[in-house]
Amino acid sequence: MQTYPTGVAAKATGTPLTTLQRYLQRSHITLQPCDVPSRGCGENRGYSQRRIIQIALTTELARLGIGPSRAAKAAFEFSDKGNTGRPVGELYPLGQTLLVGLPDGKSVVINIPPDKSISDVLSNDSAAFICDCGYVVAKVLSNLSKS
């Protein structure tokens, strides 16, 4: 699996390097088996595409006023957990893929089919925040293709 160095990850996500380092130091973002940890011998840390997308979603949610701990946990629901019809770290093939933070602190990834509205899908659930994963993923993939 391809990984990217810290500078590329920061640039692709629009996350200032100091903020990315803070996310890691405070364990908001934790490296997973698909990432490469720094071994301290001049070997750079490597971020997988999934981790870069988690960082981008975390940064986007933080810009919306969501605390980094909650933002990173919510982003992990998209980047590292799949749903029926949606592989891990990928968008639903049709419609919109939304990351929804619920008032109880939990987060879910939902699909809004082309013929439905968000109110049809959320039914009686109220949302604390909603983030369009498609927009964030497209921005990250575009930036990574330029690196």
Rank of each mutant, 00 (worst) to 15 (best):
residue 1 M to V: 08
residue 2 Q to M: 05
residue 4 Y to I: 02
residue 6 T to E: 15
residue 8 V to L: 15
residue 9 A to P: 00
residue 9 A to H: 07
residue 11 K to S: 14
residue 12 A to H: 10
residue 13 T to M: 07
residue 14 G to R: 08
residue 16 P to Y: 03
residue 17 L to H: 09
residue 19 T to P: 11
residue 20 L to W: 02
residue 21 Q to C: 06
residue 21 Q to N: 13
residue 22 R to V: 10
residue 22 R to P: 13
residue 23 Y to R: 00
residue 27 S to R: 13
residue 28 H to K: 07
residue 28 H to F: 14
residue 31 L to Q: 01
residue 35 D to N: 02
residue 36 V to S: 05
residue 36 V to C: 03
residue 37 P to S: 02
residue 38 S to W: 02
residue 39 R to W: 04
residue 39 R to A: 04
residue 39 R to T: 11
residue 40 G to L: 04
residue 40 G to P: 12
residue 43 E to F: 12
residue 43 E to M: 12
residue 45 R to I: 11
residue 46 G to C: 05
residue 46 G to K: 07
residue 46 G to D: 04
residue 48 S to R: 04
residue 48 S to Y: 03
residue 48 S to W: 04
residue 49 Q to P: 14
residue 50 R to V: 00
residue 50 R to G: 05
residue 54 Q to C: 06
residue 55 I to K: 07
residue 55 I to A: 06
residue 56 A to K: 11
residue 56 A to P: 08
residue 57 L to H: 11
residue 57 L to A: 14
residue 59 T to I: 02
residue 59 T to P: 00
residue 60 E to F: 05
residue 61 L to T: 01
residue 61 L to F: 02
residue 62 A to T: 10
residue 66 I to L: 15
residue 68 P to W: 13
residue 68 P to H: 14
residue 68 P to I: 09
residue 69 S to G: 15
residue 69 S to V: 13
residue 70 R to Q: 15
residue 70 R to Y: 09
residue 72 A to M: 10
residue 72 A to N: 08
residue 73 K to V: 07
residue 74 A to Y: 08
residue 76 F to N: 09
residue 78 F to D: 01
residue 79 S to P: 03
residue 79 S to G: 06
residue 79 S to C: 03
residue 81 K to Q: 11
residue 81 K to F: 05
residue 84 T to L: 10
residue 84 T to R: 08
residue 86 R to L: 06
residue 87 P to E: 14
residue 91 L to N: 05
residue 92 Y to M: 07
residue 93 P to G: 08
residue 93 P to W: 12
residue 94 L to S: 08
residue 95 G to W: 01
residue 95 G to R: 00
residue 95 G to K: 00
residue 96 Q to H: 07
residue 99 L to W: 03
residue 100 V to C: 06
residue 101 G to I: 06
residue 108 V to F: 06
residue 110 I to M: 05
residue 111 N to W: 03
residue 112 I to T: 02
residue 113 P to T: 01
residue 113 P to V: 00
residue 114 P to E: 01
residue 115 D to A: 05
residue 115 D to C: 01
residue 116 K to L: 06
residue 117 S to V: 01
residue 118 I to G: 06
residue 118 I to F: 12
residue 118 I to P: 01
residue 120 D to N: 14
residue 121 V to Q: 06
residue 121 V to N: 05
residue 121 V to I: 14
residue 122 L to F: 07
residue 122 L to S: 10
residue 122 L to T: 10
residue 122 L to E: 12
residue 123 S to I: 12
residue 124 N to T: 13
residue 129 F to E: 07
residue 130 I to S: 03
residue 131 C to A: 14
residue 131 C to K: 12
residue 131 C to E: 15
residue 134 G to I: 01
residue 134 G to N: 10
residue 136 V to A: 01
residue 139 K to C: 08
residue 143 N to L: 10
residue 144 L to M: 09
residue 144 L to R: 09
residue 146 K to E: 15
residue 147 S to M: 12
